[in-house]
Nucleic acid binder design. Structure first.
Lengths: 341, 341
DNA sequence: ACGTTTGGGCCAATCGTTTGGGTAGAATGT
DNA sequence: ACATTCTACCCAAACGATTGGCCCAAACGT
């Protein structure tokens, strides 16, 4: 009941049934409360409203979009949704989008430039009103191009050039880690640094390195290993870092998953995280607290990042000037970060 | 270059520029190679094609959908995208969708019935051609309703009633775990069983219990704890299971994340997974192998499940009769499953 | 020589909404 | 009493693409 199975109900269905013109019905159903009053008499408004939801009328979005040139669609590009960090950010985006009456297309690009290109085109082909990129390359070249095509967009998670973004204050996060490790007496720290094109890894690393330098300690280049952001990436990078006569006493992985990979690599060397070597991650994913040795990490507001990213895009679409925002990270100390021997 | 920034290029742009009628252009650009030959002369076809991609023509999907009543959109509902399992399944869906020229809307429902309802309506309101549910309740009541509204859909991950689905053979998976644990001499096993409304947990548990029964061993009700599918759910359930004078010698968690939670709970009791208690998970997420004690688990073909789910939906949309499919699981033995003392 | 086919396109309706203009009649102002 | 202003609507033109017909001229068949 309610929703007829056979013929979709349109404005015309309602108009005909009530002996009115579709435009009248449209105005009543569409306009804000104040305006609908001037569109028809109170009783007509009432009749239209009643019939509309009796029939379960739902406006056809394709017709609306065609006419208004607004799709209420936003495209979202992420490296991988199976990365819990991005998935959580996306959840925030999607939540906020729903609140704004927007729907989202999301696509994985695997951080591959040609996929970014084809998926962006596909999404633009769908006539989205705007886009959110969670997979920005720090050089921002591709994004400049997109901007040149007049597509409004916002970045989340990673920054690039001067494009508006909503991120965690990754640099500060790195500094927090450095301070913590310095307090614990670690003078020899290594970094599983993530991909060289992602601002997240870059900034987190820079924060740590800078703070160490301020403390008079340098982190040499061979203590910094670039890595993928997933478990096996962290594993591989750590294995490389450990392939040296005197291993570091602490490892900072710029991502919890990479940290888990690091723990695996340590294990393979007969070392125990949180016992022989301090390990610190980033993001405070729900796993961190539950690992056999609970992981010290930096909590980043992933859900908020998504929500705020979407809101920023909405403001952008409304023509407002927007600016980038950095959300505050928080150090969460757990058992994996032990004092230096 | 290529894409004009100002006015969107439509069929009309091309037609006018070439002195042709839009219908001619439409036929040439739209039809399959064989048909386009009868639509215009070879040279005209050539001219149209050239101009089209010189101008970077992209058909307006809203116009097309409005006219054809086909949106090439599919809606996907999942409990949570931040669950790596569902995220990976979705990646499969999205990949396959792209190959078929389809786009997807995905929404989280958190397994909450009212969210399932509102999100389904929202998605249907977007005029999707079909849907994929990854969050089916085993009773299938809501899905019967959706079916009654004439929306074609396919389930992934979980089954429900007789609705077409693509799942892992969870029952078999449970049996494989049972066989493994029996071989290791475990006579007293507990199950972190997942939510009571999800066929995954139900079937995996049933597989194990049945196999144990066949071996002449029963798994009493107080050894089976319902749980959420995430880390903290597994933790809580395991804590309950351990709150007994004689703890089990093995724990089967129907999900790797729940297994990680179980490991955390064991740790809190001073027990070590893979040392004092055998722990087995399910899904073989990338983390499983990297844990300090690598996790024995059952590999489920998550990506394929998504891909096959989408393909099944496509067949359904083409009017073919489809049937449910169970993909084969594989036991992956690692260090966390030790013999019974 | 004349009817038929075919090649190559054009015409126009249609999908469902939105929106800038009417307009007829009633109410109001002076 | 007559001009003006509301009220409560209706009209029709878009938005872009698709598609069943239709049509003209050239080619073909016999």
């Amino acid at each position: 009941m309610g929703t007829q199975r056979s013929r979709p109900v349109t404005l015309r269905t309602i108009a005909d049934q009530l002996g009115l013109h579709v435009s009248t019905v449209s105005r009543v159903l569409h306009a804000k409360p104040d305006e609908s009053l001037r569109a028809a008499s109170t009783s007509t408004v009432e009749r239209i409203r009643r019939l509309a939801d009796e029939l379960g009328y739902q406006p056809n979005p394709h017709a609306t979009s065609l006419r208004t040139r607004r799709s209420n669609l936003v495209g979202v590009l992420v490296p991988r949704l199976s990365d819990m960090v991005l998935a959580t950010i996306y959840e925030g985006i999607e939540e906020a989008a729903a609140e704004h009456g927007l729907s989202t297309f999301v696509a994985n690009t695997g951080d591959r430039p040609e996929a970014q290109r084809t998926r962006t085109n596909m999404v633009i082909g769908r006539r989205v009103d705007g886009m959110i990129f969670g997979d920005a390359y720090v050089d921002g070249r591709f994004l400049d191009e997109v901007a040149g095509r007049g597509i409004p967009f916002v970045l989340v998670s990673r920054t690039a050039g001067a494009h508006p973004s909503v991120t965690c204050d990754d640099y500060l996060g790195g500094r927090l880690v450095a301070e913590h490790l310095l307090e614990l007496g670690h003078r020899d720290v290594a970094v599983v640094a993530g991909e060289p094109y992602a601002s997240t890894g870059i900034d987190r690393t820079a924060g740590l390195v800078d703070r160490y330098r301020e403390a008079g300690l340098s982190v040499p280049a061979d203590r910094i290993a670039q890595s993928r952001f997933d478990v096996s990436g962290g594993h591989a990078a750590t294995a490389r870092l450990l392939d040296t006569p005197n291993p570091p006493t602490a490892i900072f992985a710029v991502n919890d998953f990479a940290a888990i990979g690091a723990i695996g690599a340590l294990r393979n060397q007969g070392l125990r995280a949180g016992d022989d070597v301090a390990v610190v991650g980033f993001n405070d994913t729900p796993l961190a607290a539950e690992l056999p040795v609970p992981l010290t990490t930096v909590r980043s507001p992933m859900l908020d990042m998504g929500r705020e990213g979407l809101r920023t895009l909405v403001r952008l679409l409304e023509g407002e000037a927007v600016e980038s925002k950095r959300l505050r990270p928080e150090l969460i100390v757990r058992a994996s970060s032990v004092p230096s021997p």
